[in-house]
Design a protein around this nucleic acid. Structure first.
Length: 673
DNA sequence: GTATATTCACATCA
DNA sequence: CTGATGTGAATATA
């Protein structure tokens, strides 16, 4: 696609007229064109290991017995190369990669360029190895070793975070449906963290000053408990976390991290400076009067850290636009306390104040948020802005086109269209009709046929987050009588996050978001024209169609759902294997939406999920993209393009038809496509 | 070892 | 749309 392959395989940009991008003609209609055809689906696939009768499931090449979870110690304790280059274990040394966007697919790393073996047997051996690694990398492991519980790394932290949110989403789903086996779950976040902690599913339990291995500057969190579980800040409510350090005979409390969340009269006078108030003295729920703060606990720890010149981790909490009560926490990296003083607060009582200054050379975090805020409010102009909205109003919210890297004025011409265009219809085996709900479809209501199609579970939580991956998500369609903002219409109501198409350093155009994105959030669908097959690549002749989404490709398996057994009495174990009526190939070469700009990564932060809804008594499958994990603003969005099945079958070992991967992930497979 | 105090949560309801 | 309120849970300290 444009980003991933465009810069590498498309001939020099002189071949197209860059000015034409300004002529993008949007099709206003969101209703796809469906010439009704009684024909059977033309996309007959001959999978190598078929047959696939009704449930066609070509996506996992390794369908055999699932391997037992490998010994975690052997793999996750692999030393340096697997560690994030941004979060070394060392205590004070700051990683300085100069990459300001905080992305995981660090473009500063060069492609691996792994040599490909030539013999078939070697290839098989390599594939097995890749598979084993993939299981460790992508699947939840059953347990976390005692060593990992004390000191984490990127993988363990990622694992804990993914499992926490999967569990939290599942608990929210149960709560929404009032199906909780043990009564009411009022706080899914607390419940999920409680379960995680009781099972030892946590990391970085050992408190430390400075860098927390596996947690990167710019990482975002949506609950305080998430930060507890990965050892970034282990106080559930308190703003100052500290540890006792022995110095000679004396015991000294030292601050390790603070959360600035708006509860006190803090000031953010500068992006790199924070005036932080000490704790205590507040009017609290026990009807205590306001009082002078005392030099004890956190306040004492901050004072000691000032004198010792220690680093303190700073987490900035702010309002999440998604709802007025919701908060999002940004890890803003290491600060040092410059001075402290006492002043009178609004209540007239003494408050300790600490001036913290951010250490230089750290990746952008809070300052990125501030910049975005200014672009949004129009106080500062976006450097490199080419078009304020490349969709020309087709989408409900604008998608800006930005290049602050070079002189290229935009991607090649295409027609912006927000959905997928079927030429011929799919037919589901069973006749399809919508539900009979006349208000909003309610979770737990088994009278709703759309919910029944989803196995009785409502696929989304109350705030529209996908709970789990499923063979096929069924949404309410245009003919369902339920209200248009029924919670079971997530992927058909247009973009919700503020996206930006931008020029990457070395991978063509890419996609990223101004908004922070929660795991499970719908990002966009893959729009384009449904085609019968991908044009064969003939060297030197014809045009490559790099803008293709193809369900028949081979995709790395990964586990995203909450594992069964974590929730007491919950046997829920949905398969994550996709199952759609017939293969689907979508070309976005001439017609498409923002999804055509999403690049490939072997360590992606976005995944695709087939979603069906019914139109004119026929069910149409759409490819919807969801966030795999929480994604900080301005981080490039990537998904796994998979590998072409035909190349696997004919044993072609060259890079023929494949692209060299530039994702920079430690587990990069070397190529894709 | 257990109990209690502390706490810049969070969701809900008025 | 705020603010009050209720339930909540890990950690430090007694």
């Amino acid at each position: 696609m444009e980003g991933g392959s465009g810069s590498n395989s498309v001939p020099p940009s002189a071949t197209f007229d860059k000015s034409r991008v300004l002529d993008v003609k949007p099709l206003r209609s969101l209703v796809p064109v469906f010439p009704s055809s009684p024909q059977a689906p033309p996309f007959v696939c001959a999978p190598p290991s078929g047959p696939f009768p009704s449930g066609f499931s070509p996506f996992y090449p390794f369908n055999g017995p699932q391997p037992t979870p490998p010994d975690l110690n052997q793999h996750t304790h692999t030393p340096a190369p697997l560690r994030s280059f941004r979060a070394p274990q060392s205590n004070g040394k700051m990683a300085t990669d100069g990459n300001a966007d905080g992305s995981t697919g660090a473009p500063t790393k060069r492609p691996v360029g792994r040599p490909r073996s030539s013999s078939a047997s070697q290839k098989k051996a390599k594939k097995d190895l890749v598979f084993t690694l993939a299981v460790v990398d992508n699947n939840f492991v059953l347990g976390i070793t005692p060593a990992q519980r004390e000191d984490g790394d990127t993988e363990v932290v990622n694992n804990v975070r993914m499992r926490f949110d999967a569990l939290r989403r599942r608990l929210s789903q149960l709560e929404d449906a009032k199906e909780s086996p043990n009564g009411w779950i009022r706080r899914a976040d607390l419940k999920a963290a409680n379960i995680m902690m009781s099972k030892g599913l946590r990391t970085n339990l050992r408190k430390r000053v400075g860098v927390v291995p596996g947690v990167e500057v710019g990482d975002i969190f949506f609950f305080r408990m998430e930060m507890c579980l990965v050892g970034l800040h282990s106080q559930t409510m308190a703003g100052i976390d500290y540890m006792i350090v022995r110095a000679d005979i004396e015991e000294d409390p030292l601050a390790v991290s603070i959360v600035s969340s708006g509860g006190y009269e803090d000031e953010a006078e500068d992006r790199d400076v924070l005036i932080y108030s000490g704790q205590g003295g507040n009017v609290n729920s026990n009807k205590k009067e306001a009082a002078d703060q005392k030099l004890e606990r956190g306040n004492l720890a901050l004072e000691r850290s000032l004198h010792r010149n220690n680093e303190v981790r700073v987490i900035r909490g702010m309002k999440d636009a998604i709802s007025p009560t919701a908060k999002v926490y940004v890890y803003d990296g290491l600060y040092r306390i410059q001075e402290s003083w006492v002043e009178k607060g609004k209540s007239g009582c003494n408050i300790f104040k600490y001036k913290l200054v951010r250490l230089p050379g750290q990746p952008g975090a809070f300052d990125v948020w501030k910049s975005i805020q200014q672009w949004r409010e129009g106080f500062s102009s976006r450097i490199g802005l080419i078009l304020p909205d490349l969709t020309s109003g087709t989408e409900g919210i604008p998608v800006s086109l930005v290049n602050d890297v070079d002189k290229e004025k935009g991607p090649a011409y295409f027609t912006y269209f927000a959905s997928v265009k079927y030429v011929k219809s799919f037919k589901l085996t069973e006749p399809s009709c919508g539900c009979n709900c006349h208000n909003a479809c309610a979770p737990g209501d088994l009278n709703c046929s759309c919910i029944r199609k989803n196995g009785g579970d409502f696929p989304y939580t109350a705030n529209g987050v996908l709970v789990s991956r499923r063979p096929l998500v069924h949404e309410c369609g245009p003919t369902c009588p339920c209200i248009p903002n029924c919670k079971n219409r997530v992927t058909q109501t247009g973009l919700k996050v503020r996206l930006e198409v931008f020029k990457t350093k070395d991978r063509g155009w890419g996609l990223r978001s101004w908004d922070p994105i929660r795991a499970g959030t719908f990002i966009c669908e893959y729009a384009g024209e449904v085609i019968e097959k991908v044009k064969a690549r003939q060297d030197g002749e014809g045009e490559d169609d790099d803008y293709v989404f193809d369900t028949t490709r081979v995709y790395e398996p990964f586990k995203w759902n909450c594992e069964p057994g974590l929730v007491e009495g919950d046997g829920n174990d949905t398969t994550e294997e996709y199952s759609i009526p017939s293969p689907l190939i979508i070309s976005a070469k001439n017609v498409g939406n923002v999804a055509r700009f999403m690049n490939h990564s072997c360590n992606p932060n976005v995944f695709w999920q087939p979603v069906a809804y019914e139109q004119n008594s026929e069910s149409y499958v759409h490819i919807a993209f969801f966030a795999m994990k929480h994604i900080p603003p301005m981080t490039e969005l990537t998904y796994d393009y998979g590998t072409s099945r035909s190349d696997e079958v004919d044993g072609n070992d060259s890079l023929h038809g494949k692209k060299k991967c530039l994702c920079g992930s430690p587990r990069c497979r070397g190529c894709f496509g």
